[in-house]
């Protein structure tokens, strides 16, 4: 990942929260979603205009469903766009993403507090 990739992203994708130095994030997961998007772009999975289109579509969809449109939820839409593009590009089906999400949930449930949460094959089975 290079700064050039970030500059291209901020130039091509409207609304990315920024300060004078570049992107800013409210919570760590937002930066993680951003980082995954940069990595997939670098792999050539999509162009920035494709990304911007999908994101705009997710924002529109959320607004139609009553999203307050205050900018607070920007990265929620970003995450939805990322899940959607990953599925549309055939990287992983929506079902695989759901199963993996459920497996992480299961891993949390069986992990006593204070232990690192790690995913095991058995988390996928119940």
């Amino acid at each position: 990942m290079t700064n050039a990739t970030v500059s291209q992203a901020t130039a091509a994708v409207p609304g990315i929260p920024q300060d004078q130095d570049g992107p800013v994030f409210k919570e760590p997961w937002e930066a993680q979603a951003f980082a995954m998007t940069l990595a997939l772009y670098d792999r050539g999975l999509f162009t920035w205009s494709e990304w911007a289109g999908t994101l705009a579509d997710e924002i529109k969809r959320a607004q139609a469903a009553g999203d307050p449109d205050t900018g607070e939820t920007y990265y929620s839409h970003w995450l939805a766009a990322l899940e959607r593009l990953v599925a549309e590009k055939g990287v992983a089906t929506t079902e695989t993403l759901h199963r993996t999400r459920d497996a992480w949930d299961h891993a949390c449930d069986r992990t006593p507090h204070g232990q690192p949460i790690e995913l095991r094959a058995s988390d996928f089975h119940d």
Binding site: W29, Q32, A33, M36, A39, L40, S76, L79, L82, E83, V86, V91, A92, T96, L97, H98, T100, R101, A103, W104, D105, C108, D109, R110, T111, P112, H113, Q115, I117, L119
Partner: peptide, 20 residues
């Protein structure tokens, strides 16, 4: 409070990272 917790959003982000 005996087990660990992640928020819905954190679960989805972890799932994406795992799959990718």
């Amino acid at each position: 409070h005996e087990h660990s917790e992640l928020s819905e959003t954190q679960l989805r982000v972890r799932a994406l990272e795992t799959v990718l």
